[in-house]
């Protein structure tokens, strides 16, 4: 299956990736090839097969006791942030 430029633009938007004009034809070509390649999956008969989300059988979610184990470390954590003010992370204005 081949993807159109429009398809790739939509995917890039959903994934919030800026793709330049120069890169666009390359991605259209690459992604089309990848999708054609994985299309082979549809040759297998999987009618009665349960999908497998985890590689180990029989493992179940462990539940953690409800106990606080953290102290305020926001200054340390915010050292990696580009813009911070008054303890808040800053982003361009959110418009609803």
């Amino acid at each position: 299956m081949s993807l159109t430029r429009k398809d790739v633009e939509n995917i890039a938007h959903l994934a919030r990736l800026a793709i330049t004009e120069d890169e666009m034809p390359v991605y259209v070509n690459n992604l089309s090839k990848i999708v054609s390649f994985v299309d082979e999956l549809n040759t297998a008969d999987t009618a009665a097969i349960e999908p497998m989300a985890h590689p180990l059988k029989g493992q179940v979610q462990r539940l953690r006791p409800d106990e606080i184990a953290d102290r305020d470390q926001h200054e340390k954590y915010q050292r990696n942030a580009a813009r911070v003010e008054a303890g808040l992370y800053l982003v361009p204005k959110v418009i609803e």
């Binding site: 993807l3 398809d7 790739v8 995917i11 890039a12 959903l14 994934a15 919030r16 990736l17 800026a18 793709i19 330049t20 890169e23 390359v26 991605y27 690459n30 992604l31 990848i34 999708v35 994985v38």
Partner: peptide
Amino acid sequence: RGEGFGAEVKRRIMTGTYV
């Protein structure tokens, strides 16, 4: 994201988003 990720990472993110 466009500038921070390289081509292969973007390819895989887009493949994953698509599927």
